[in-house]
């Protein structure tokens, strides 16, 4: 099976702080930018990084068919599992792939959607 070609970069909103948008595109499918507030919960922690399962809020910075970028005040580590409540779409599980601190102090957390 051949891999679909990399998407053309969708222009980021003008108030974008850089982050993943400036870097080499890693997503297989095109990003759609939005600014939706979502509620998330840590569903899988790492042995050395225990966390409480309390709900947190984050902003959905962009999404594509296989990944999303969250803007949040807290740093997340690669391989942590998050559970996200999408309005109208229900719950989806994500695995954290990368995290980058932005100039405004927020962390942009790149996550891959896990199969439902």
């Amino acid at each position: 099976m051949t891999r679909p070609p990399r998407p053309r970069q969708t222009p980021a909103p003008s108030d974008s702080q850089g982050g993943f948008a400036c870097e080499q595109e890693r997503r297989r499918f095109a990003r759609r930018y939005c600014g939706l507030d979502v509620s998330l919960r840590v569903a899988g922690t790492l042995p050395a990084f225990p966390r409480q399962a309390a709900a947190k809020t984050a902003r959905l910075a962009d999404f594509s068919r296989n990944g999303i970028c969250l803007a949040c005040v807290e740093e997340f580590y690669p391989c942590e599992i998050l559970e996200l409540d999408f309005p109208e779409m229900g719950q989806r599980r994500l695995v954290v792939r990368r995290c980058r601190r932005q100039r405004d102090g927020l962390f942009h957390v790149g996550c891959e959607l896990l199969e439902a």
Binding site: L46, P47, A48
Partner: peptide, 26 residues
């Protein structure tokens, strides 16, 4: 450069499930 700069993250990913490594080590 981006591939090269990814090595700390990849190293962390490879080790983060090891039960004998501490937070400070990771």
């Amino acid at each position: 450069r981006e591939t090269m700069n990814d090595h700390p993250r990849i190293g962390f990913q490879d080790l983060c499930r090891q039960p004998n490594l501490t937070r400070e080590q990771l």
